[in-house]
Amino acid sequence: MVYSGIGISPQDVANSRYLTVPYSANLRYRWSTGAAVGRFLAELKNGKIVGRKCDKCKRVLVPPRMFCERDFIQTSKWVYVQDAGIVDTYSISYIAADASRLEKPLIVAVIRLDGTGEAGILHILGGIEPKDVMIGMRVKAVWKPKRRRVGAITDIRYFAPAGDAK
């Protein structure tokens, strides 16, 4: 059993063939960063990446959390990890968050950080052309100058091919 609805084209909207009601919301938020990520952000300001160790599964969790979601116990300590790792997967974004076209495509990647086991973080690749990116390649963080860091994930400008790349 099927109901045939009435489809409206962009032209119909533009020509006011059917009435629509416009509205835009403007809501402002201020989020708490939390016990784990708050410290992570503060360390980014120092140019360091910090994780939390789970004594049961032995993972170093990045992004850090105060509990291990697998073992459901408190993590035990802060552990500094390298600001370098390997590209686990990547993609090339031609669109912005609102689906508008980007002038210059952005290389997006999950980077598996050295010394963490399986912890990867989402970030952007730079200093490399899209066609040269490979899964498994080594990359290292390129930081903003210290005075411009604010305690945000964007204190790392991007990850670039590591000098020690083979």
Binding site: Y29, W31, T33, V37, L41, P63, A96, A97, L106, V108, I121, L122, H123, I124, A152, I153, T154
Partner: peptide, 8 residues
């Protein structure tokens, strides 16, 4: 909101 959205 803290770790992913700022990247766009």
């Amino acid at each position: 909101h803290t770790l992913e959205r700022p990247l766009g």
